[in-house]
């Protein structure tokens, strides 16, 4: 009785699997416009670990083409190219290229990239500790001194002169419907971040809910109502070791509401740039960038900050 049951189920599954092979998603190979420019030993690592999904040079092996896996492979390639495509490196501004590489190395270090399912099928894509060190050394070597940067001094002075005339009457609203929260300046500081990767300094503020959650050890997951604000300024270096804040760059918010923002891991993301507080992004889908970057922190409720109990 049992044997017949398993035989019938097995035969049925085989027919379905065979039938699925006739459905072929399309993975195209558009022309390369400008490739990543890096030393060979650095580029080789990116090519091996990332290019299948993050370039137009996708190499689909025969075993990737077996359905229903092929659907997932095609979706990964589509999503991968959307987030970062090394074949269109020339389309990115120099600062964005730098930021993408630092993010990529951080994703690799956190074990978020290459994605687990890809690594299992393509074990050669794994980045070794030695290779990761090479990538890090390359990034550190690209940093340049910011001592007495006259352009940055000029930006700060200009902002100081114009700041009062740029005050907005209406509060700006992000493309995903989040209204700028001016009150963050009265919140408590839960950490600072000296971002030597991009020459900015940041302060992370937490509202009362966040500060209370830290005090009571309820910070993973963070309770609904938690709001973080992260403000960024240029770093000014006087050449004597003193680094102070220059021009205001942006402020970002993370608002916890597990129901309202379910599709973005329970957090509402928003970013307002320059003293004019211009909402970031071209469409409401800018949040994909936020969730992709925060993905390695999935065990920490998608929060990077280590809050200080104060």
């Amino acid at each position: 009785m049992m044997k017949k049951f398993f035989l019938t189920v097995g035969a049925g599954l085989t027919v379905i699997l065979l039938g699925l092979q006739f459905f072929r998603p399309k993975i195209d190979h558009p022309l390369l416009t400008g490739d990543l420019d890096a030393p060979k030993e650095v580029k080789d690592v990116f090519v091996r670990a990332c290019y299948d999904c993050h370039s137009n040079e996708t190499n689909v092996r025969w075993y990737d083409k077996i359905q229903p896996v092929y659907w997932q492979v095609a979706a990964d390639v589509r999503e991968g190219r959307k987030g970062l495509n090394f074949s269109h490196w020339d389309k990115l501004a120099p600062a964005d290229r730098k930021a993408k590489l630092w993010e990529a190395v951080n994703q690799i270090e956190a074990g978020a990239m290459p994605i687990k399912s890809y690594q299992i099928v393509h074990p050669d894509s794994k980045v070794s500790e030695k290779e990761l060190s090479k990538l890090k050394a390359y990034l550190l070597g690209q940093l340049h001194s910011i001592t007495n940067d006259t352009a940055k001094l000029h930006d700060r002075d200009k902002q100081l002169r114009t700041i009062n005339s740029e005050k907005q009457n209406d509060l700006p609203v992000s493309l995903n419907g989040i209204t700028y929260i001016p009150d963050y300046k009265n919140w408590q500081v839960i950490s600072t971040s000296d971002r030597f990767d991009n020459g900015t300094m940041r302060v992370i503020y937490g509202n009362d809910v966040a500060v209370k959650a830290v005090k009571n050890g309820k910070n993973n997951p963070w309770p609904d109502g938690t709001i973080f604000a992260k403000a960024a300024w240029d770093k000014l270096d006087d050449g004597k070791g003193n680094i102070s804040a220059g021009a205001f760059k942006q402020v970002e918010f993370m608002i916890k509401d597990s129901k309202k923002y379910k599709s973005t891991n329970g957090w509402g993301f928003a970013r307002f740039k320059t003293p004019k507080l211009v909402p970031y992004g071209k469409t409401a889908m800018f949040t994909t960038e936020c969730t992709n970057c925060h993905q390695p922190m999935k065990n920490n409720d998608f929060v990077f900050t280590f809050p200080i109990k104060n």
Binding site: Q188, V189, S191, V211, V214, G217, K218, N219, N220, P221, K298, N299, N300, D301, V303, F306, P307, I308, K309, N310
Partner: peptide, 24 residues
């Protein structure tokens, strides 16, 4: 399945202020 990190491990203990002084 990966486990969520215990909340205490996500507090910056080194930098935290002692209970005797509260900035907030």
């Amino acid at each position: 399945c990966e486990q969520t990190t215990p909340p205490a491990e996500l507090i910056n203990k080194k930098a935290s202020l002692p209970g005797t002084f509260s900035i907030s």
